[in-house]
């Protein structure tokens, strides 16, 4: 078992024939991901990496039965691509591209929600179910199969966390990089719930960052709903206070979003909070033994 994706998941790539799309689609296929085709407008009918290319997501879905899309289009086209996927009946879009305008993502997310499509990202490493399916840009070899679920805002801390879990003799069910942009898709709450319901996952690593209040909300959710052990690290305890212009951002969330606030909230929700990412592996060993 795993969450969201497995070896049978049919995946298409939006931005399939571009250099990034090509490189990472190849890596994903080498990992075992069932990529069934891709979309590049104007190149429909061609073949790329041995898979069919379509002009539209609608055609790709009709022809391949794909349910998940990996989005690699350039930043200015991300909003459009996500809305196309949502309108074509895709169930999950994994958005890797960095630098999509916030206004575009706001509209795209609203469209996804309306069409019942889940999203991950943007600006994230993607999602991986160990030894089965990788949809993203993470180095697949460090994710050995096991019983720990991982959720992280940061890409490289996803790798660091997974690596430590593996080095302690444990492994990963599914790891998800949710991204740290102002508008993101699946967040801690929904993924924590999925890991709670996944029979194979026995513990969860949650990696957060300063800013915003998602981790605070997650702490409340964990207290009320999660019975599996959770290990958390919040990056940015030593980050300098940002030089800001206005105050509106802090008022809106009702929190300054400091690492300390988040660590305290998680700790009082019963989470094992570590002060350095170097302690994640040890903490997992502790909660699982």
């Amino acid at each position: 078992m795993s969450i969201l994706i497995n070896k049978d998941t049919k995946v298409i790539v939006q931005g399939f024939t571009g250099s990034e799309g090509t490189f990472h689609a190849e890596q994903c296929m080498a990992y075992g991901t069932n990529i069934v085709g891709g979309v590049t407008p104007g190149k429909g009918g061609q073949e790329h990496l041995g898979k069919p290319v379509f002009n539209t997501v609608k055609e790709a879905v009709a022809s391949t039965g794909a349910t998940v899309s990996m989005v690699f289009v350039p930043p200015a086209f991300v909003g459009d691509a996500v809305m196309e996927a949502a309108s074509a009946g895709i169930e999950l879009a994994v958005i890797i591209t960095e630098g999509a305008p916030v206004k575009d993502m706001q509209a795209a997310k609203a469209c996804a929600v309306k069409n019942g499509m889940m999203t991950i990202g943007p600006n994230c490493p993607g999602i991986i179910t160990a030894d089965e399916c990788k949809i993203g840009i993470m180095p697949g070899n460090i994710f050995k199969k096991g019983n720990v679920g991982l959720i992280s805002k940061s890409g490289t801390l996803t790798y660091e966390g997974a690596n430590q879990v593996v080095n302690e003799g444990y492994g990963i069910t599914t790891a998800v990089g949710i991204g740290g942009d102002p508008i993101i898709g699946l967040s801690y709450k929904q993924l924590l719930k999925m890991f709670q319901e996944d029979p194979e996952t026995e513990a969860i690593v949650m990696i957060g960052e300063i800013g915003g209040d998602l981790e605070i909300q997650a702490a409340k959710f964990i207290e009320e709903n999660i019975t599996k052990p959770v290990v958390a690290f919040i990056a940015g305890q030593t980050a300098p206070k940002g030089k800001r212009m206005g105050h509106a951002g802090a008022i809106i969330s009702g929190t300054a979003g400091t690492a300390k606030e988040k660590m305290d909230a998680l700790e009082s929700a019963g989470v094992k909070v570590v002060v350095s990412p170097a302690e994640i592996g040890k903490a997992i060993k502790e909660v699982l033994s």
Binding site: K153, S154, E209, G236, T238, S276, P277
Partner: peptide, 27 residues
């Protein structure tokens, strides 16, 4: 971003960069 400590850091990824600073501080 310049800070006022003694250990220069070069890291890939903002999250790991902050995590590295936190670890240096912790030690």
């Amino acid at each position: 971003i310049a800070l006022d400590g003694e250990i220069g850091c070069m890291v890939n990824g903002a999250g790991l960069a902050m995590g590295t600073m936190d670890t240096i501080n912790y030690m």
